[in-house]
């Protein structure tokens, strides 16, 4: 979350503070909603609706985690309601399981949160560094080949590779859990 963010501002009705919360959470919530509703417009709308509710109830929250939990649960409820209404369609699409286990919801929350963190970590890498890492680890090119493609010196490739976070190596290269520990 942005350093200028102040929870009290949000509670007292500051729209800029609310926007920071919105920008911080919207994508992962949208992703979460899409797990239940494939129609992206509708999924996006559940996210907006949840934020409208958060704004109305802003005085009831004590911290950001409470806001976030409320957003997820509100979206989940809307998605289930929507699916109930559109049962006619879903009856034919094999996905009319009304009861979705609590466990599955929690796992979707976990997944949305992890992806968001991974994306934000990748975003922090400088562009050039990202290209070098991608070609080196994902496409498995040699330093010389990477240098030729990006038209930079082999030394720059080496430096950029060193700068690349271990995260990218991990994210861009499949690995097995057992192989690491």
């Amino acid at each position: 979350m942005n350093q200028n963010f102040c929870f009290e501002d949000f509670r007292s009705g500051n729209e800029d503070a609310f926007r920071m919360i919105y920008e911080e959470y919207r994508t992962r919530l949208f992703y979460f909603a899409s797990k239940y509703i494939p129609e992206l417009e509708v999924a996006e709308d559940t996210v907006q609706e949840a934020f409208v509710k958060v704004w109305q109830k802003r005085c009831n929250f004590n911290d950001l985690d409470a806001v976030k939990a409320f957003l997820y649960i509100s979206i989940k409820n809307q998605c289930f309601n929507f699916r109930k209404h559109s049962k006619v369609v879903h009856l034919y699409s094999n996905s009319h399981k009304e009861e979705i286990a609590e466990e599955e919801i929690m796992n979707h929350i976990l997944e949305s949160e992890v992806l968001d963190r991974v994306f934000k970590a990748l975003e922090k890498l400088p562009r050039g560094c990202r290209d070098v890492m991608h070609l080196s680890y994902f496409e498995e090119l040699k330093n010389k080949e990477v240098a030729d493609i990006l038209k930079i010196s082999v030394n720059t490739v080496k430096t950029q590779k060193r700068r690349g976070l271990s995260l990218l190596k991990v994210v861009l290269k499949s690995f097995s859990f057992l192989g690491l520990f």
């Binding site: 985690d65 929690m106 949160e113 271990s166």
Partner: peptide
């Protein structure tokens, strides 16, 4: 609510794992 928070924590751990 509490379960949701527990999963926020787990997500932080998974991300830290990916981050080494």
């Amino acid at each position: 609510m509490e379960r949701a928070k527990l999963h926020f924590d787990l997500a932080r751990l998974v991300a830290r794992f990916l981050n080494g």
